[in-house]
Nucleic acid binder design. Structure first.
Lengths: 233, 233
DNA sequence: CTGCCTATTGTTGTATGCAATCGGTCGCTT
DNA sequence: AAGCGACCGATTGCATACAACAATAGGCAG
């Protein structure tokens, strides 16, 4: 039996979104290699929709940096940004330090102003579930789901920061990071995941200084681990 | 004679691109205020094209963070990310430090490997023209063109870095920064522009350390200047 | 044989038409 | 009168059809 129900997705999520996610998944996990030419008609036939949703999906993926397009000349799958890894991690470090700090500041503000908003609680609840799911996965040795959970955790923190700009930037960088990690199933999974609860605690405590410091260290370790593994020696 | 040929743009640049640039300009420079509802039909009529180019333009602007859209519910102009200014500058600092460092490294590599590529020379030439244009504008006291020249200079450095990922990220952040500066015509124009030649010289000399340091300081000063002017006292 | 010019083909860009969905409003029930 | 549910206009999402452009293959001159 296929042991991969990572996308139960009850309702069918709008053709365009579905196509976009499918293509991105195929790019990240190898089915569509860098340099391959992708035509709207072929993808439309493959996914059983018209060219318009495919077209919009390709444009979105172009904005995310997964495909390159030229007017009237078609699109090709981008190269994996392996040479940019170190710099991407550096930017990510500054970016996530900012989101963690802001999230903690916002938590403090919300609690000191009476009751947090319903939106805050929703995201916070989602993060709690994520932490539990990750712990369970670690306990069961099911490390291959951690990258996905990891990205969702960090994006959740960005949501708590309340900054749409920073969240959008993180989403863009996360895509690249996931792409870089696609060939490396577990990197330093177990140890890295454990640090998440510390960050969450600092945010809940409304402690911007600790939140920023812990997040920066967390991302920095991720960077060092990646470079140790993949950097040209 | 009109002394402003910054956009000679001989050929008409594809309806979709034109519409996208027009809408973005209207958002940044006030004609479209945050929160206003924008419908595809209205914009299509305004620009004399079909809904499709307008639609794609809106999607691109959504990816750039200028409009928010929800399925079947339409789009609205985003809020100016004034609360995110400090964090955006912080990320930009890390980002541009990386591009400057890489550009210098790449310059060194290109020169030590014989002759730089034609592509490199093209961008380098464009930057030289930009520096001259900026100097002339400063000399004439025509400070209102500096923000535009400034962004193009920094994006040019990103091009020299040879990293599509970093360039895309900078493009996204630059849009927000330009938006933040839209109400402030000259900020610290003259002084800031003078620093560009120092950065360029460090890159030409193939000195990554100086390039990174100068660029980081340059962006940092820009950040401080903005916060001094606009931050809530 | 080589280089350039042209015709053709495949692909994207845009226009129009229809179906699906959202927001608000009116009417009904309690 | 207040709450609630169904209808209706407005708007987006998608499909089909046509036009514009780039890339490539073939012919012709040199």
């Amino acid at each position: 039996m296929p042991l991969l129900p990572p996308e139960p997705e009850s309702a069918d999520p709008a053709p365009k979104q579905r196509v976009q996610d499918e293509i991105r998944h195929d790019i990240i996990f190898g089915s569509l290699r860098p340099g391959t030419r992708v035509t709207e008609a072929a993808l439309a036939a493959k996914y059983g929709v018209s060219r318009i949703p495919v077209r919009e999906a390709l444009r979105a993926l172009e904005a995310e940096g997964f495909v390159d397009s030229r007017p009237y000349a078609g699109s090709t799958v981008s190269e994996i940004p392996v040479d940019d890894a170190d710099d991407l991690f550096a930017v990510r470090e500054a970016l996530e330090a900012a989101t963690a700090r802001r999230a903690a500041r916002r938590a403090l503000a919300q609690f000191s102003a009476g009751e947090p908003s319903v939106e805050w609680w929703k995201t916070r609840r989602l993060l709690a579930d994520l932490l539990d799911d990750g712990d369970q996965a670690v306990a069961e040795g099911n490390l291959k789901v951690l990258p996905e959970l990891n990205i969702r955790f960090h994006l959740g923190i960005a949501d708590l920061s309340g900054s749409a700009s920073l969240t959008a930037l993180l989403r863009q960088i996360s895509g690249k990071i996931e792409w870089l990690y696609a060939t490396d199933v577990d990197h330093r999974g177990k140890q890295s995941w454990g640090e998440h609860r510390l960050i969450m605690a600092a945010i809940d405590a409304g402690n911007p200084v600790d939140a920023e410091r812990l997040m920066a260290g967390h991302v920095h370790q991720s960077r060092v681990g990646y470079l140790d593994r993949f950097a040209t020696p």
